[in-house]
Amino acid sequence: MSAEPISRREIRAAARKRSDRQNMLIAALSTIIVIGGGILLVTTRQGWPVVQETFFSVDAFRMSFPDILRGFWIDVKLFLVVEVLVLIFSLLVAVLRSTRAPALYPFRLISAVSTDLFRGIPTILVVYLIGFGIPALALPGVPNDPIILAAIALTISYTAYVSEVFRAGIDSVHPGQRGAALAVGLSRAQAMRFVILPQAVRNVIPPLLNDFISLQKDVALVSVLGIVEAFRVAQIEAASTFNYTPLLAAASLYVIVTVPLSLFLDRMQKRDRGRRRLEEARR
């Protein structure tokens, strides 16, 4: 240690470092006690071996996982197709609802009514209604493939939600932007296309992703139509072996997809907050 006087800056830095180290130590200790204690408490109970065998059986996992994974591939494909369809239709509905041309009035009315309608009906009911209802009509030229009908049902249901997200995005763009776009001589349609929509979409990316995480889980609803996707496979396995491990295996597959999406969403929202703060600081 040198004898010469230490600067205020160094004293502060040292104090900060000391307190940081102390905080970390406390956090680590607390985590070990709470979580370690919890695990110890659960695994030493009398019933634990039964729980382990029923939900976390390695054998049952090994037996069922390949089939579940194959089933999950159907979920993924369905998700990707429905996702794209929902984006297209909901954007169309949102833009349509913000138009003012009198000739488009019936379309505005239809999209407003159907949005309110389908947001109110449980998705599972829509899937059931379309998946079983349409084949029952036995109309020529109408698809009977349950996967196609499931995709239609999910698209209808989710378009209702997502179009509202886009509409909120369009409303969130400051009216002065539209004024400025018109003032430079753009038409209403051009103002929408080049000025309002790009900002609207950017503003609603977080809630959009949120709805997609929902959709990614809700594709499992199509199992009611007898489509053998991950959840259905797991259900069949569980029912025949009285072991619930396959269900957890299926659950983990959904989680593997949704968790990265959520983390990505969190990061984006954080960045967005940072950018907004920066913008405000500039004003």
């Binding site: 002065g176 932007q177 004024g179 400025a180 900002q199």
Partner: peptide
């Protein structure tokens, strides 16, 4: 052409 109070840049 118009220049707005708050510029209304895109």
């Amino acid at each position: 052409a118009m220049v707005f109070q708050h510029f209304n840049l895109f």
